[in-house]
Amino acid sequence: MNKKITSLNDNKIPSYVSIYNQIYSDIVDGVYKNGSQLPSEPVLAEKYGVSRNTLRQALTILNEDHLIAKQQGKGTFITYDPGRGVPASRIVNPVIECARREITEIKISYNYGPPTEIAQHRLGIRVSEIVMASNNVYYSGGRPIGHSFVQIPVRYVNELDVDLNNEDEAYALVNRRIFELASSAELSFKVVPAEDNVTAFLQVENETPIIYIEEILYGSQKEGIARCKFYFLPEDYDINFRL
């Protein structure tokens, strides 16, 4: 009640709003199908009766809203998917489930050792426990778009009867099975500057803004079964959870 509120509204609607609304409606109504290529700027400008500058402003907002995506040298494509979004009832690996394009390759490397202090705290485990730690890099079209670091107490690896000498079973454990085992999860989201522990995996410069999610997975007795740290490039992801 003590806050001062100042209105800067001059009652002028930007010229690109109308064209944005028209293209948005056409996308939602299926005039432009998900995955299809949007017509060129000259064609769109003529169709909607606007200047190319006004059209570009509308396309910029549509891109920010993740309804379209520009692919260098190829054109602009529709990315609107009404079914996209992870139901709150599902616990998932967001690097896979929320990618705007299909993950075509995952490279994993893992080892064993004592838990870090923060892993002890987050998972509620003893310093004497052994933890499996896995670095995973996610590729789409040959380009890395996401990275995860997953820590799992070995007793849960044993509980799932995973043969870690089998590459397929190790892959399934850190990307699918540990999420299926979880009864609940706690997530935190941040936008952070990329640092040395991430830049090599994502092949980006230091300080590049990236999305960071920490997800703690809990078992049926509320015990911590995994700590997952996810790093991914904002332009390649839609983080949508349906509540």
Rank of each mutant, 00 (worst) to 15 (best):
N135D: 15
I125V: 10
V162W: 03
Q151P: 01
E207R: 14
E129L: 02
P193K: 11
A182Y: 06
E195G: 12
P193V: 15
T208I: 05
N165I: 10
N166Y: 01
P153E: 08
N158L: 05
S109E: 11
E195F: 06
V154R: 08
H121T: 04
H121Q: 10
G146E: 07
E169V: 02
L160V: 10
S140N: 09
P114G: 08
V174C: 03
V157W: 00
E129H: 02
D196Y: 13
L202K: 06
Y138E: 08
Y171C: 04
Q151E: 12
V204L: 14
V191M: 14
L181V: 01
T199V: 15
I125D: 00
A119K: 00
D196C: 02
R177M: 12
D163M: 06
L187Q: 11
L202N: 02
P144F: 07
Y112D: 08
V174T: 14
F149N: 09
T116Q: 05
A119F: 01
S109G: 11
M132N: 10
N158V: 09
V204T: 15
V174D: 07
G124R: 05
I125M: 00
I145R: 06
V131R: 00
E159C: 05
P115T: 03
I125C: 00
N135E: 14
A185N: 14
I152S: 04
E129T: 03
Y139G: 08
F189H: 14
E195P: 03
E167M: 03
V154Y: 06
E186S: 13
Q203K: 15
K190C: 12
A185M: 13
A133C: 09
D196E: 15
Y171Q: 11
P115F: 02
